[in-house]
């Protein structure tokens, strides 16, 4: 469950603070600016603005986590209106992943000028100054404290944690996951299908590690985790964990 609260900078800090009353307070205080939800006779239309993609996704993610989201998104037909925005294949994938995460079926809506279909639109390279195949998001969710058992972050971008990820906690991110602390819980990086994502931590002893479509689990025998920072990535179809080497 992803919980966000409005901070002075906007909504780029998505926290791990999970509570009944926090959720209620957040529900009253926050209205989206990057997306609009409109109910019509036969369903719900989600219109995405031209704003930064990460903010659009983050706002949609927050809307989906609202206490009453189940009622709102239960509409028989959900249309996604992208306006003038042309979606890259990656963006389409992220959007689909986010909605699938919440078991929501949807269809693309054409407004005449654009027909955004998966795989058909040009990637907007201007927003991403790198030509690398690795997806670049503008922002990352920062969790400034330890994630305890039962607490979960789901974010359509990178996730950084300042603290531990305890056993029983879970992070699901479309991008990379970096933990300035110990990882004992479950981490899924590149959850929208990106095998290039990485998981880095000061100590990696996760219950389970997932990158893209790959899953690795801790050995059944108790082992003393290696001390020192490590990074996990997919190499030749397998998740491997390497010690972090300082680059000059």
């Amino acid at each position: 469950m992803l919980i966000g609260w409005k901070n002075p900078k906007g909504y780029d800090i998505l926290g791990c603070k999970l509570s009944f009353d926090t959720r209620e307070r957040f529900d009253v205080a926050w209205t989206p600016t990057m997306i609009t939800l409109k109910s019509s006779g036969d369903g719900l239309t989600i219109t995405l603005s031209d704003g930064p993609w990460s903010k659009v996704l983050a706002e949609l993610a927050l809307e989906l986590e609202r206490p009453r989201a189940v009622e709102i998104f239960r509409a028989p037909l959900i249309r996604i209106e992208t306006g003038e925005r042309a979606l890259t294949p990656l963006q389409v994938e992220e959007l689909a992943w986010l909605l699938e995460l919440h078991d929501i079926k949807f269809e693309w809506s054409s407004n005449g000028t654009q027909t955004p279909l998966p795989g058909l639109t040009e990637p907007r390279t201007t927003e991403h100054p790198t030509s690398s195949a690795v997806a670049v998001w503008e922002e990352a969710a920062l969790c400034p404290r330890t994630l305890r058992s039962g607490q979960t972050i789901r974010y359509a971008g990178h996730v950084a944690v300042m603290g531990d990820v305890n056993a029983g906690a879970e992070i699901v991110a479309a991008g990379d996951v970096l933990v300035w602390g110990r990882v004992r819980g479950v981490v899924h990086a590149g959850a929208s299908g990106n095998d290039n994502a990485v998981v880095g931590a000061l100590m990696l002893a996760p219950t389970q590690l997932r990158i893209g479509k790959h899953i690795a689990r801790a050995p059944d025998e108790l082992q003393h985790p290696q001390r020192g920072p490590e990074i996990a990535r997919v190499r030749e179809g397998r998740i491997i964990i390497e010690g972090w080497k300082f680059k000059d």
Partner: peptide, 15 residues
């Protein structure tokens, strides 16, 4: 200890 960890999270969330 696992359950205690969960409870500490809920206590923190209750401010």
């Amino acid at each position: 200890v696992r359950d205690a960890d969960r409870i500490i999270g809920l206590v923190e969330a209750a401010e």
